[in-house]
Simulated assay, not measured.
Amino acid sequence: MDGFTRRKEMKKSDILNAAWALFMEFGVQKVSVAEIARKANVSQVTIYNYFESKENLVHEVIIFYIDKEWLEYELLLKSNVPFPDKIKQIIFNKKETANKIHEDFYQYFMKEYAAEMSYIENLYIEKTVPSFINLFNEGKEQGYIDKDLSNEAILFYIQMMKEHMQREDVYQKVLPMTEELMNLLFYGIMGKKEDEKK
């Protein structure tokens, strides 16, 4: 990558980071392109040159955020961290995100999630499902997931939950319950929480 391309990519990354931070705190509606430009230390013209419109920028910020989150999950899932601790970290991360994300930005995020063949859907099919299967197998090997439960049944359960959460009337209510739903998803599969096994 030459110097010009590198600088361009860094500038684009600065804009995405600035927009993401502002959207997380204030939501999409209340944040102007001028405010994003100020925070990213670029001109508004630069933002429009890179993203064409605020709507496209929001879409790109969601993809940027998903990629960032997925990279962290991937590192966690491939690590030597014990299975129960992986689950706790996944739940804690979801709780932290739910506590920090502005309701307005969350609604934009969920509209993207609900769109057919969205970036999120492709990531789910190509990367999340195979990684979850590996995680379930690891949980079974370590005795935390019932070996009689097939991966197909677990994935079917997750798919039902996922499809339900893609409905607008559902995702508008779900944010305050994020931690509870993650607990239900993972500890429901495991049978009981780790501290209850002792």
Rank of each mutant, 00 (worst) to 15 (best):
R167A: 05
L155K: 08
F132I: 15
E163L: 09
E126F: 12
N183Q: 07
M177P: 12
G143T: 01
Y171E: 00
G191Y: 07
L123P: 14
G188N: 06
V170F: 08
F156M: 03
E152H: 04
H164S: 05
L155S: 12
F132Y: 10
N151H: 10
M161T: 11
L181A: 14
L155W: 06
F132C: 08
K192Y: 09
V170S: 10
G191A: 14
P176R: 01
Q142L: 12
N122L: 15
M165I: 15
E168G: 09
L184W: 10
F156K: 04
M190H: 10
E163T: 14
E126C: 13
E152L: 03
L175W: 10
V174F: 07
L184D: 11
K162E: 14
Y187T: 05
F136D: 01
M177W: 03
V174P: 09
Y124C: 08
I133D: 02
Q142A: 11
Y157C: 00
S131L: 10
S150V: 00
N151A: 08
K127Q: 11
M182I: 15
M161F: 10
L184H: 08
L181R: 14
Y124I: 06
P176N: 05
I145F: 00
F186S: 05
E179G: 06
E152A: 01
L155C: 12
K140Y: 04
G139W: 01
G188M: 02
E126K: 07
K127D: 05
N151V: 03
L175Y: 09
Y171C: 04
E141H: 13
M160R: 12
K192D: 11
R167T: 03
Q159P: 13
